[in-house]
Design a protein around this nucleic acid. Sequence first.
DNA 1: CTGTTAGCGCCTTCAG
DNA 2: CTGAAGGCGCTAACAG
Lengths: 361, 361
Amino acid sequence: MSRRPTLSDVAREAGVSVSTASLAFSGAGPIAEQTRERVHAAAAALGYAGPNALGRQLRSGRHGVVGVVIGDKVKRSFRDPVSIQMLDGLVSTLSELRLGVMLIPGMEVDETGAMKVDPLLETSGMDVAVLIWGAHVDDPRLDVLRRRSIPVVIGEGNPSPGCSLVAIDDRRGVAELAEHLYSLGHRRVANVTLPFRMGREAGWIENPRDEDIDWTPTRNRLEALEESRLDVVATYETPASLVESGADAARHILDPARWPDPSQRPTAIVAQSDLLAAGVVLGAREVGLRVPEDVSVAGFDGVDLPWLGSDRLTTVVQPLEAKGEALGRAVDALIQGRGATEVVLPVELRVGTTTAPPPAV
Amino acid sequence: MSRRPTLSDVAREAGVSVSTASLAFSGAGPIAEQTRERVHAAAAALGYAGPNALGRQLRSGRHGVVGVVIGDKVKRSFRDPVSIQMLDGLVSTLSELRLGVMLIPGMEVDETGAMKVDPLLETSGMDVAVLIWGAHVDDPRLDVLRRRSIPVVIGEGNPSPGCSLVAIDDRRGVAELAEHLYSLGHRRVANVTLPFRMGREAGWIENPRDEDIDWTPTRNRLEALEESRLDVVATYETPASLVESGADAARHILDPARWPDPSQRPTAIVAQSDLLAAGVVLGAREVGLRVPEDVSVAGFDGVDLPWLGSDRLTTVVQPLEAKGEALGRAVDALIQGRGATEVVLPVELRVGTTTAPPPAV
DNA sequence: CTGTTAGCGCCTTCAG
DNA sequence: CTGAAGGCGCTAACAG
């Protein structure tokens, strides 16, 4: 027989009916041990490797696949260890539920400048979609998914009716971080922010309160800092959470020409991610400032930064793997038909070696 | 109607037969424009979002999914930018072919210490599997895939009959790098290698030629260096391609206690990956040596290392995205039934600022 | 415990 | 250009 054997071939070979053969593999019903063995022997003889996934999927109406929508091209998304650790938790959790993770790049900007949703999102089969970096306002990806009636789990913000949500308590984290700096004696700080929405450039923000911020973590962390007792004397927006962007921001913020009276210079820089903060540390050293003696630096995320050497970043640790697991549980709940859920995970301040009292004037 | 509408609902609503409705969506045959519109209108009225993926998949016998087997947990695999860039090329190429990428973690070691293949690999539906980091000797994952008759593409080495292969010409790359160092005047070098196989620890290798190296890139790069005109005076194996491991290796290799006669110390360190090389640079500086004045350092891969600041690593650049694309094309060839293929991609030496003539004794 | 029956949603012959 | 019929591989009822 040249074509691949099917369950009915096996059943015929074993001299039983297909449904019995099915039971022999699934174990979903009572079956005589002897029959089971006969079926497996027949399968082995025919080189049958178990029930075909396609047949089972059509029958059950489930793909066994979760689409994970990353924000951008794989390369850009995964330069950030934050995404990766989250994905790790998600993949392990789903793997235990026998669900595969399919990677779906986010949107592309086509020749005309319009946003185009990846074709995989339009046609590919999946039981649930996870937008790990949240949804934009009027997000076309959400429209597509809604039209296809695919349930959605959103990571981090801009909750949308009918979608599950997994977020972190970043406002409280930033508030604690601000208190830590305040209690060390800092008053004037600079803020290095994540991008406000897709496709932003690096640059100063004159009045953060006037800005329309589409991306929730950016907004939460910025607002929490603004609402703290610290005086945010400068805000620099970055185009992405990257070491280079942080270094660039530090160069601008600490530029001596900007502070004719050095005593007015911010004594601490708060970066909204650890990668940015690492860049800020490098940038500060480049312009000849010591961290933390001359300027304190703090980050957000709590990822490993091997190349900072013996320095340990003061940061707000978010439970990345737990977040991935929570996303996985939210997926499971939707598949089980248990409806949309919302979770907010706690974060924790971790004081390292990059913050200290401000220099005596 | 509470259940999700199907093509036959749409056909009934539009007053045509199912096969006509099918043509209206697929465009795979002649159909009157008017009929097409009527069908689409009916679909819109019913909230039908296009042909169901499961039905189509069962019919066509294809999943539209490629399983990408990464070596390890997501977190560990993707700490390496090499994997990510390759994956980027692979995902974009496959996305154009309307194929999704499903991530499959590699193997786990269970309580008893035995290797366990991820259940997704055993049961999940996929048209082709890609082992991006190659196959081991007697790789149980290959056995599973062979049993399921799933065609396989192997990235990097240990080719296996019937599997497609995408490799790079790393031997030639290392040979060129060695010539570069030789021509600068180096004679004594140290080698910081990638792991020889799964689950290795860091440590000295007394006689590299006696070792059984299961992982092809490790073997190729090690042998090419051994075969060069350079004298490899020390070989240190690392457990993974990480900055920390490179720094650790450098500390051991450059330990003053190891070289009572400093003139015998290697004047250059060749690391088998850029992450390792970056670690070596950091480690060398830690023990008070300047790079490249006191010791030259070279890597392999050609990835971006933002935190090295103004230094540019001398390295062998491999075309990572092209490798991903080549993997994608190999997948396509297998799906089209065009049989297994083999490709070897060229690499290129890129001289940076971390190699220079050895110090005058 | 085992066999029979009836689809899951779609596409592709083959006629008309 | 359109319609009718069959089947991709499997499993869940329901009988026996």
